[in-house]
Nucleic acid binder design. Structure first.
Lengths: 171, 171, 171, 171
DNA sequence: TTTT
DNA sequence: TTTT
């Protein structure tokens, strides 16, 4: 069995960084990858591909990438499913990034970076399974996790996650 | 922009071969790709990845692969969306296979095969856009989706498509 | 059988564009791809990977890339061998690029570019076999081709190739 | 920087398993990957691609693969160079396999296998650098390269390496 | 809606 | 719900 994906595209929005209750960082973002060919109307369409990255590289993504950033992803396709609000099963296909490469020229993205290497490695082969994009109750599991806090919105995210109801979370 | 996917896995069902009104073959199938690692319960899960292939390789897929066949796919990720029955937009992520490789040992799959080469090349960079998996009204278009005829079910599929208006189809 | 390579790196020199006697463009270049990890001395080494690209994208490469350009390559590994000057067989491993992606920001590379798409597709599945990097007599073939003229050096390359000795050429 | 290779092909010979003086397993093998197209003579050629794999998966490769086995490789391209016998620099391009997938049907390869998973993960991002294929003096170092002991030939390989100075080895 |  |  083999499962390998390589993408280069641009972030459609700022990445979304959250933490699991056990403190594992997870970032999600969508890459717009322009197609190499034009459609019948002569336009070049794009594919919009959801990506997830875990742990340290998740934090790097949040720190160094933003809407419009050019980035490369090396990872694998993951499928999962969960029960939607309406009780129907929702099927999700997304990319688990094992490394994310920052392809903007130096200094382009404000943040910093420094040094000459700028790829972020990390998705371990056993990263936590979950639904970092939200949007439903994950799988069959009943659970009482407290889930994510968006670090960009709340610099103190690591601490206070108290006001999040168990049922709102995908873990 | 780069977009490359390589998969090796097993077909979850026999492939589904159809033809567009203009006579272009398109096959769809799902690959089960076992993960390289085990989950917390010690089980090895699989990803179930939808694939589409066009033209001659579509026919090869239909002829040489069946449920359980081991196959390799080299292609790209495609996203599209359409309006669901309930009027809600449905987002789809699938693999457009540019080549499909038959990895069963010789003679394993009944059909035939012969020779030593057995990879099926094909998805052109400008293959017809559409929703070969069905399941909704494609894109913004209003249509009544009589569309495809399954060649496996109907050996005469190539002929009787006369009552399908071009406007009914997602291409 | 599957054979897929995806690279992102920087050109170590200006690309080298030549034409076969039958007028087919072929460009060669070397990509420096920094490794994701450091060696025992704490340095990040690079791999220097030879690439070949044929036809129209070869000309695009010559026109839009130069020493230091950041580029992506999607292609396959090719091996070949030829008899060296000393009569010994020389083994070569290189990448045949099917598409080359220009990843510099707009305006960065002098040349121009224009438009919004900037990937160069091309290596046909049956590109001419040869030794575009030079360095030996190709394979078993006896031949009297006049071979390449470097377009960058000689804008009139298409015409006058008369002063190139047969024995200097890899075809 | 990105560097990703995926191959499926057949071993041209039994794999070669050795151990570094510090006891790290390293296996080398060559994959024959048939091309998807035919040459002008109508023959389908193959590319012969050298692969290296480290640690546990190296031992799995030695145990489960042999000449003719169908295998998949997911890894990266590595280039290195060393001084040849004649004092000339020799350039090497090879694949460092991060995972190797055994694609033969169960029972096909004698050995065993067992269980349902059969991919071998392993090449760490910082695997020892060296010249497991032999064939020269590695890098700038002067050495007399007694190096490796082939475990298949010598079941006691793990023990008798006492007379090899650390300076003689490419690690 | 999942393969061995 | 889309990027340059």
């Amino acid at each position: 069995m083999m499962n390998r994906v390589v993408l280069v595209g641009r972030l459609t929005k700022d990445p979304d960084l959250r933490y699991t209750p056990s403190g594992v960082a997870v970032a999600t973002f969508t890459l717009a990858v322009n197609r190499a060919f034009s459609n019948q109307q002569g336009e070049r369409e794009a594919d919009f591909i959801n990506c997830v990255v875990w742990r340290k590289p998740a934090e790097n993504v949040a720190n160094f990438l933003k809407k419009g950033s050019l980035a490369g992803v090396d990872g694998r396709i993951q499928t999962r499913n969960y029960e939607g609000q309406d009780g129907k099963r929702v099927y999700v296909t997304e990319i688990v990034a094992e490394s994310v490469q920052f392809l903007e020229p130096k200094g382009a993205s404000g943040g910093g970076g420094g040094g000459r290497g700028n790829d972020f490695y990390g998705a371990p082969p056993m990263e936590p399974q979950g639904n970092p994009f939200g949007g439903g109750n994950q799988n069959q599991r009943q659970n009482s996790n407290q889930g994510f806090t968006k670090v960009n919105d709340d610099p103190f995210a690591g601490s206070g996650q108290i006001d999040i109801s168990d049922d709102d979370l995908p873990f």
